[in-house]
Design a protein around this nucleic acid. Structure first.
Lengths: 204, 204
DNA sequence: ATTTAGTTTAACTATTTGGTTAACAAATTT
DNA sequence: AAATTTGTTAACCAAATAGTTAAACTAAAT
């Protein structure tokens, strides 16, 4: 087996493809641009990943497998609902700072092709709400938390965490903030969101 | 001046373009597909709207001018913050049922080209938070509402309302619901969201 | 009825783009 | 070191695509 530049090249390609796909989407991305970005010939893209579709799926799966563990954390650990919420919002914000394009990329491409999810849902490591649901029900019965369905609460948590990054340009305009001020808002949200959610659901 | 089919054709084109652009995005849309959808020849698209870009902008501006009034309603009317929140969530959900593709379309295309907003912000009818901010501050001073910045509250309201429609495929998978069950969740949110937000901010 | 302005089409063009080929280069095996 | 396998490139190809052209058609105005 040869390598020398082998693994290195594959990594370069994936990194370049990630950059291009995540900023332009599947339809907007050009194989030539990815090749240029990776500093190689276009034919080499097809040597490593047969087609644009396959290269795209490699990038997409990479992105998704970074996001999934974040969700499993909140759904499957043993701490209280309140602590889960605090941990999740805190973890998620720092995750996003490292990978700012991921949420929008995933959401956009899943809207373009919802079938991606069919395969993924069969993977046993795909996040599910079962445990979260039971735990929430127990805390509601114990009077710690006001009645709310696990689905609604989960959607709310995701919405409050993810949306500000997905809709950044729009929200920047509406709140009339520049990049710096908007990032400051995002930092503040790490605590704000958690308190907001806890207030909303905690029995008083 | 002649018309006969004039306005009619232009309307047909815009309707067809809306359909194609909103489901495939600027890059994924094809002029031929829009022409077919409108039941006309491709050259006619260029006769009415010189280029793909111009046709796209017409569709985009149409979509945006449907969304903007929704926001101005909550930001500039005179009722209490609580009532504004209830009215907005109620209005927004029924708006979305009529125009399900709009939020995702706008968000996606603004991420692709944030410069769109520069022109729009100059329009005096572009929504802004000034009035909402003052009103909120007053209610906080009066002890009706717990301290929160207008920007954060606004982002939270938008997030809770818009995100479930933008991220529908992803959330459908995570909550393990089919289309029917997910739509039921969305109906329930009309009341759920409002209560959730009020609980979170109302002083007790 | 003829002119005129607006509307519509089929056919065409130039360019872009994903993908292929064939030849070359470098490393591994024998 | 000869043969084989793996990695890389330039040149090429066919399909797709945005946009153009020139001619035909329609209906109102003169």
């Amino acid at each position: 087996m040869k390598k020398s530049k082998d693994e290195n090249t594959e990594e370069h390609i994936l990194e370049a493809a990630k950059l291009v796909f995540q900023s332009k989407g599947m339809d907007g991305a050009r194989m030539q641009e990815i090749a240029d970005q990776a500093g190689i010939n276009k034919a080499l893209l097809h040597y490593y990943f047969r087609s644009k579709q396959m290269l795209f799926e490699a990038v997409f799966n990479n992105a998704f497998s970074l996001l999934a563990p974040q969700l499993k954390a909140i759904l499957n650990d043993e701490s209280t609902i309140e602590n889960k919420i605090r941990n999740f919002t805190s973890n998620y914000i720092s995750f996003i700072v490292k990978h700012p394009y991921i949420p929008n990329f995933i959401i956009q491409e899943l809207n373009r092709n919802p079938d991606f999810l069919l395969k993924m849902k069969e993977n046993p490591s795909f996040p599910n709400l079962d445990k979260f649901k039971k735990q929430l029900q127990k805390e509601i019965e114990n009077g710690i938390i006001n009645p709310i369905s696990a689905e609604q609460l989960f959607i709310n948590i995701m919405a409050l965490n993810v949306f500000p990054f997905v809709a950044k340009p729009l929200l920047k305009a509406f709140t009339n903030t520049d990049d710096k001020a908007y990032n400051k808002l995002m930092e503040d949200r790490e605590i704000e969101i958690a308190n907001f959610i806890i207030n909303a659901i905690k029995h008083t």
